[in-house]
Amino acid sequence: MASIKVHGSVFSPAVMRVFAALYEKELQFEFVNVDMKGGAHKKEPFLSLNPFGQIPAMEDGDLKLFESRAMTKYIAHNYNDKGTQLLIQDPKKMAIASVWMEVEAHQFDPPAMKLTWELAIKKMFGMETDAAAVEENEGKLAKVLDVYESRLAKSKYLASDCFTIADLHHLPNIQYLMGTQAKKLFDSHPHVSAWCTDILARPSWSKVMAMQNQK
């Protein structure tokens, strides 16, 4: 039995981010579905894994983690000798990777996640889209992608010419948004569009999407 367990939903962007890291590292893991509709994430035993009652939660032996980006960093560091090299060893280059990880979390994710919620996830639950929120966050994301376009004109990937954890963190929101009207924001930035096509085609990501298709 795999020592790694990931608790959550296969449709959660945060959970998908962790899956991607595990598949890049070619690691065996057990997925434990959390009944979100039944509120299992707000009750024990889940709260013993994440006291904030949010997915995902992860176990690796006696180690318990929450927050998806902390999980991906742990996976990349602890299993550095497995699968894809998601980290850059050179200190200066790793610093650049860290910058783009922070950019994803603090600049890209807020508008992208709001658009994912409004344009993709709400539709999955038959909820009405907030057009004003969509317009506001499309404007915000477009400005972020202007910066990405400039960066990706100089580098194949965000941190370097190699795929790293900085790129991986973007995958879930990009996947969802490519199936919505927000795709136009990516298409209007040629280097960003090429980057999206590249990272979405990774075998690890195909395995993440296959998990959803099994549901």
Rank of each mutant, 00 (worst) to 15 (best):
Glu30Asp: 15
Val34Ala: 01
Gly39Ala: 02
Leu65Gly: 09
Glu26Ile: 07
Glu24Tyr: 11
Glu26Phe: 05
Val32Asp: 02
Phe46Ser: 03
Leu63Ala: 05
Glu67Asn: 04
Gly53Leu: 00
Met94His: 14
Phe29Ser: 05
Leu47Met: 06
Glu30Cys: 08
Asp35Phe: 01
Gly53Met: 04
Tyr74Leu: 04
Phe46His: 04
Ile75Phe: 09
Leu65Cys: 10
Gln54Val: 11
Gln54Cys: 08
Lys25Met: 06
Leu49Gln: 10
Leu65Phe: 10
Val32Gly: 01
Gln89Met: 15
Lys73Gly: 14
Thr72Pro: 08
Ser48Gly: 09
Gly61Trp: 09
Val34Phe: 00
Lys73Gln: 14
Gln28Lys: 13
Met94Val: 10
Glu24Ile: 12
Gln54Arg: 15
Gln85Gly: 12
Glu26Val: 13
Pro91Gln: 06
Pro91Asp: 08
Gly83Arg: 02
Lys92Pro: 03
Lys73Trp: 07
Gln89Cys: 14
Thr72Phe: 08
Gly61Val: 08
Pro56Gln: 13
Ala70Gln: 10
Pro51Cys: 07
Phe52Val: 10
Phe52Cys: 08
Pro56Trp: 09
Ala57Trp: 03
Val34His: 00
Ile55Tyr: 00
His77Met: 14
Ile88Thr: 07
Lys25Arg: 04
Val32Met: 05
Ile55Ser: 00
Gln85Arg: 14
Val34Ser: 01
Ala57Phe: 04
Val34Thr: 02
Ile88Asn: 05
Tyr74Trp: 07
Tyr79Leu: 03
Thr72Ser: 12
Phe31Pro: 09
Phe31Gly: 04
Ala70Leu: 11
Phe46Arg: 00
His77Leu: 12
Leu63Ser: 05
Glu24Arg: 12
Phe31Met: 02
Asn78His: 15
Gln54Glu: 13
Pro91Glu: 08
Phe52Thr: 10
Val32Arg: 11
Met36Ile: 14
Ser48Cys: 02
Gly61Met: 08
Met58Cys: 12
